[in-house]
Amino acid sequence: MTAVAGPGGGRGTLYGIQYLRAVAALAVVFFHAAERSGHAFAIGAAGVDVFFVISGFIMWVIAERRPVTPGRFLKERMRRIVPVYWLATGVMVAGALAGLFPNLVLTAGHVAASLFFVPARSPSSGEIWPVLVQGWTLNYEMFFYAAFAACLFLPARLRLGVIAAAFGLLVAVGLAVSSDSPLLATYTRPIILEFVAGMLIGRLWLAGRVPGRAVALALVGLGLAGFAAIGILRLPFDEWTCGPLACLLVYGTAALETRGGVARLKVPALLGDASYSIYLWHTFAISVVAKLGAMAGAPPSLVLVGSAAAGIAAGLCAWHFVERPLLRGWVGNPRPASASASPRRSAGRPS
C-alpha cells in the first residue's frame, strides 16, 4: 500500500495513487492480452508512463518525509524489486531449458545482464530486452534508483535540480547522437524525464501547491480523455505524448488526496498492492490461455477476456503467495511503502 506522509506531516495511505497503479497494471495486461488474441489495444502500453511518474513521485515524498541514507534507500529498493523479479526470470530460464519457450534463445551473458539490470540485446530478437521481456522497465527503475540515491548525498534543496539537469543532459545526448550501444540507447531516451516529472509533482504536493478539487478532477479527466483519444483514434504515441498525460493523472490524483482525500475501495486497492506482481507474471498466464484458446478455436473476444483474467489472477496469486510473504519477512508488514515498476510497449517492446 502506498503509505506516505502528507503535506500536513501526518502519515496516510494514498489510495488514489494505489488506484492509478492498478489502472496502469490492468492497461498493460489488456495490451498484452489484445496482442495475443488479434485485437488492438496499443495505448495500454502507456501504463508504463504512469508507473514511472508515480515512481518519481513516491520516491521524492518518502525521501523528504522519512530521511534515509543512500545505502539504506538502495537496500530497501533492492529488497522490494529484486527477489520477485529474479524468481520470474528463473521461471523463464527453466521453461526455456525445458523446451516450453522454443523461440527463447539463452546465453549466459544475456541471462546475467537480465538479472543485474544491464541493458543488453536479446539473442532471440536483437531487441534491448531482458530474458523476461517486460523487465526492460526495471532497467529504468534501477537506473533511477541509483541516480536518486546518489542525489541523497546532496543538500535537499539541490536534489531535484541536479537529477533534472543530469537526466536532461542524457536526453540531449540521445537526441544528438545515434548509437547502437544498448546502454546509450536505453538511458538517453526521453522516458527517463517521467521520473523527474514525478519528483516535481511530489515536491509541489508536499508544499501544498495543488489545485482545488474541481481543477484536480479536470486534470484527471483530461489525462484519461487524452489516453482514450489516442486509443480510439489509433494515433501514434510515445513518451513525449504519454508522459504529459501521465503527469496530469498523477498531479490531479495527488491533489484529490489533499482536497478531501480519496475513499478506500477494497478491490482497486488490492490491485494496486499487487500491481508489481501482476506486471511481472501476467504474460505467463496470458500465453497459456491464448494457446489453449487457439487450439480450441475459441472466439478472439473470449480469448481476450479469458487471457486478461488469467493474467490478473496469476499476478494476484503471486502477490499473495510470493511477494507479500517476502515483504512480511523483511519489514513485518505485508504492504509495500512505495510504488514499484511496471510495463510498456508490447511484451515490453521499447520504441
Rank of each mutant, 00 (worst) to 15 (best):
L316R: 04
A318S: 14
A290M: 01
L316Q: 11
A309G: 12
S301W: 08
F284W: 06
R324N: 02
I312L: 13
S301P: 01
V303F: 01
A290F: 02
A296F: 04
A310E: 06
S277I: 10
A314I: 07
A274K: 10
R264Y: 15
A269P: 09
P300A: 14
V288D: 00
G315N: 06
L292K: 00
S301F: 08
V322K: 05
A310P: 06
I286P: 04
Y276S: 06
G260C: 09
P268S: 12
V289Q: 03
A310C: 03
W319V: 00
F284K: 04
A269R: 06
A263E: 14
L271T: 11
L302D: 11
W281L: 14
D273P: 04
A318L: 06
I278N: 05
E323M: 07
A309Q: 00
L271Q: 07
S287T: 05
S277P: 13
P268F: 12
S287H: 00
S307Q: 06
I286A: 04
G272I: 08
V262T: 14
S287D: 05
L304G: 11
M295C: 00
A263C: 11
A274R: 06
V262F: 09
K266W: 13
G297H: 12
P299T: 13
I278C: 05
P299K: 13
L271N: 11
A274N: 08
V303Y: 00
F284V: 05
D273N: 15
P268H: 10
A285L: 02
V289S: 03
G297T: 11
G315T: 11
G293Y: 09
A296N: 10
G272A: 15
L316I: 13
V262G: 13
V288P: 00
A294C: 02
G306Q: 05
G272N: 15
V288Y: 03
W319T: 03
F284G: 01
A285D: 00
L271I: 14
F284Y: 11
A313P: 00
V305I: 14
A274C: 12
S277A: 15
L280W: 05
I278M: 14
I278L: 11
W319I: 00
L302I: 11
V322E: 01
V303K: 00
S307T: 08
G261T: 08
L302E: 07
S275L: 13
L265Q: 15
G311A: 09
D273Q: 15
G306N: 03
V289W: 02
K291Y: 01
A296R: 07
W281C: 13
S275R: 05
A274L: 11
